[in-house]
Design a protein around this nucleic acid. Structure first.
Lengths: 239, 239
DNA sequence: ACCGTAGAGTGAACACCGTTAACAGTTAAC
DNA sequence: GTTAACTGTTAACGGTGTTCACTCTACGGT
């Protein structure tokens, strides 16, 4: 019943070393390079030894994914707080969007592991309890909560229920409690912001914009301005 | 120097059977299930036999990808022509967008192979000459050409160069010849349409919208209306 | 202080994978 | 009719994730 047992501490350290080695391989060789045997090789261990720490290769990858999500989440939250305390909320969202893009550009391998895998997962009852999924939810909350803050700070005009259609309004209203009680139209705009931002960053980082734009930075900037406007923000505002 | 040699015909048939088996495995078991040995097993052959038809497993996958792109391209072009000959061009774009989504929803495994892989490909000089890449270009042209047609048919209002910024305008202008001589602002709107459509469909099919919308059909419809408006179209127009 | 036991690590093995080489049978071409 | 090309085989290599039986070390309880 010892909590600070030196045995446990050693074990935690080894787990950290394993994930560290896995990430090293991920960065240097991409998703395919982070194999169980390769990780073991990196640590000077035999492959079966890793099974003392992770029940399977998939579990190891899952733990790595969860760590990366948490790191990304922390980085984005830092970005919001380290800046001036009472900075404009719209500017915060601008920082968040750019922060996500920057993280992806500077960590393409990690980004691909988090957002590129994209399993169709056709199984219906997939109440994903995996740590990776939970970390992804925490990551999503960062954006969701900021948008809700913005709404309560300076409510933006939103499309009336008539143009969205009753079906969509019903679905969006159902999610109202997760968005701080925002009306359907406002949730729709928030979702649009996220959808556009996410799609844009994925396309840029995964090189699906290369055929028309060798460098998508300027395009991203313009799009960011556009989607910010839809939320009543005029970032990057100045001058 | 025989063209209709029965040997060649037999060979072509075998190639077709191989790709057919590969696709069967893809549909039933996802991307990971279409292995070289599995394909051989499906045909009652030994694995090395496949090397008479494809130089590697990757080449087989590449050929499958090219076929799927061509199939998708053909399906989308059919969708435009089988309908009323002189149908409104805006409605054509609407059909195309919905056609792409429908194809993805009815062929999730194939869609994942085409659009989900998303290799970062950090190598600079990747003038991809692979058949898959060429087929992807042909696929992209379907959309690109229709948008150019729409522009010449009923030019839509576009943002002036000032709001886009000189950097972006320069990049877009460079691509003007590929867009039928459209001005930068119009290319920007076209690119926005594609970016939003592509991102939206990918997110829905890859299940990254499930956490807020269990069924994204209504949301897609609303978004489609919105992005069509940006191009001066009022689809789905009626009543 | 001792012993028992849980944990960490190993080596051998299994089943799978993509790929290569050397070989045999069939079939088309000159 | 002979030769050469084509199609397919078997055997093998190195790689993967994973399991099992085993050793050894070091902590915990008495």
């Amino acid at each position: 019943m010892e909590f600070g047992g030196s045995r446990d501490r050693r074990r935690a350290a080894t787990v950290a070393e394993i994930k560290s080695a896995a990430r090293r391989l991920l960065v240097s060789g991409g998703t395919a390079a982070v194999g169980l045997r390769a990780v073991a090789r990196e640590l000077g261990l035999t492959p079966p030894a890793l099974y003392r720490y992770f029940p399977s290769h998939e579990a190891l990858i899952g733990a790595l994914i969860a760590d990366l999500y948490d790191e990304l989440t922390a980085a984005l939250m830092d970005l919001q707080t380290t800046d001036d305390e009472d900075v404009d909320l719209g500017a915060r969202l601008y920082l968040l969007a750019n922060g996500l893009r920057d993280w992806g550009l500077t960590h393409p391998a990690e980004f691909a592991l988090l957002f590129g895998t994209a399993v169709p997962s056709p199984d219906a009852a997939d109440h994903e309890e995996t740590p990776g999924h939970q970390a992804a939810m925490r990551f999503g909350s960062v954006f969701k909560e900021l948008v809700a803050q913005i709404w309560h700070w300076k409510p933006f005009p939103y499309p009336p229920d008539e143009v969205l259609g009753s079906e969509l309004v019903a679905q969006l209203t159902q999610e109202s409690e997760h968005f701080g009680g925002m009306p359907a139209g406002a949730i729709y705009l928030s979702l649009t912001y996220w959808t556009r931002l996410y799609g844009l960053i994925c396309m840029e980082i995964f090189g699906q914009l290369h055929w028309v734009l060798p460098d998508a930075a300027a395009y991203f900037e313009a799009q960011l301005y556009e989607i910010g406007q839809a939320l009543g923000l005029d970032c990057p505002a100045p001058e």
